[in-house]
């Protein structure tokens, strides 16, 4: 019986259990090998595909490594100035309240230059989703210190390590915005293991559902690697992330939506 099972007979369309969603464009991702941005993109697109939202979606790309997200996501998108994505998304959502609107932002974009826009969009309870990829560094510009950089962590602009006395502490903006009544669902996840990928996808689904139910702002932080900026291999960077990032940025739900 088993002999009949050839590679060819298994690899048939009807047996396909996983493949890249067609809502990712055919274009090769511009990210470094092993970078979590790719997985984060794919999960958002999987959810949009599964919830049949492509024609309802308007996404906002940030300035950061994911500035070209619109090259990879087959949806209508706007590219925002550095840090301004939540304001841009506010403009979209206020004028097209029935569309599904999200921003995709890095930690420099969201928690440094765009802190004001982030907090006030959250505080107004804009009915949007914010997907926040925190890699503790400015990836795009070559690995400079971010507000999320860990104490003593070496970066291009903290070459002797982040001295918290003069350079400040890692900013836990996710905990901060969870305190605001305008946010309905606030969670921190990662995409470095299969189990975490599954959890992150569930979180994204929940965030999208909150928006469809008009519950307010959902905020999904994804703690991710920047192996280039951290100067490690992808596997090393994921291990380093578990050991060093997670104690400061613990995973899990911070605020769950009210039923």
């Amino acid at each position: 019986m088993e002999e009949e099972l050839t590679r060819e007979s298994i690899c048939q369309q009807e047996n396909l259990v996983y493949s890249r969603t067609p809502l990712m464009t055919p274009k090769a991702l511009s990210y470094c090998p092993g970078c979590g941005h790719g997985t984060a993109h794919r999960l958002i697109m999987e959810v949009i595909e599964e919830m049949n939202l492509q024609s309802q979606t308007i996404g906002v790309a940030p300035v950061g490594c994911s500035v070209l997200a619109y090259d990879f996501l087959d949806i209508d998108m706007q590219q925002a100035a550095h840090g301004r994505a939540p304001a841009v998304a506010t403009g979209i959502k206020r004028l097209l309240p029935d569309k599904f609107v999200f921003t995709y932002q890095g930690d420099g974009d969201l928690a440094a230059i765009g802190t004001g826009e982030t907090i006030h969009a959250c505080n107004r309870g804009e009915n949007i989703c914010i997907f926040f990829v925190n890699n503790g560094i400015y990836g795009m510009t070559g690995g400079q210190m971010a507000p999320t950089t860990l104490p003593n962590m070496k970066t291009a602009t903290s070459p002797y390590g982040r001295d918290v006395v003069s350079m400040g502490y890692p900013l836990k903006i996710t905990e901060m915005i969870a305190m605001l009544p305008g946010t309905c669902f606030v969670t921190r996840q990662s995409v470095h293991t299969p189990a975490n990928v599954r959890k992150t996808k569930k979180a994204i689904q929940k965030a999208v559902q909150c928006q469809l139910d008009k519950k307010g702002l959902s905020f999904v932080e994804i703690v991710s690697n920047c192996n280039s900026g951290w100067k490690m291999t992808p596997l090393e960077s994921n291990k380093w992330m578990e050991e060093n990032m997670f104690p400061v940025f613990p995973l899990g739900d911070i605020k769950v939506p009210k039923p």
Binding site: Q12, V17, R20, A28, L29, P33, C35, T39, R42, H192
Partner: peptide, 13 residues
């Protein structure tokens, strides 16, 4: 699931 570039397709019988 973990492939950032989404280059793996999986089949199962």
């Amino acid at each position: 699931l973990v492939c950032p570039d989404g280059v793996i397709s999986v089949y199962r019988v």
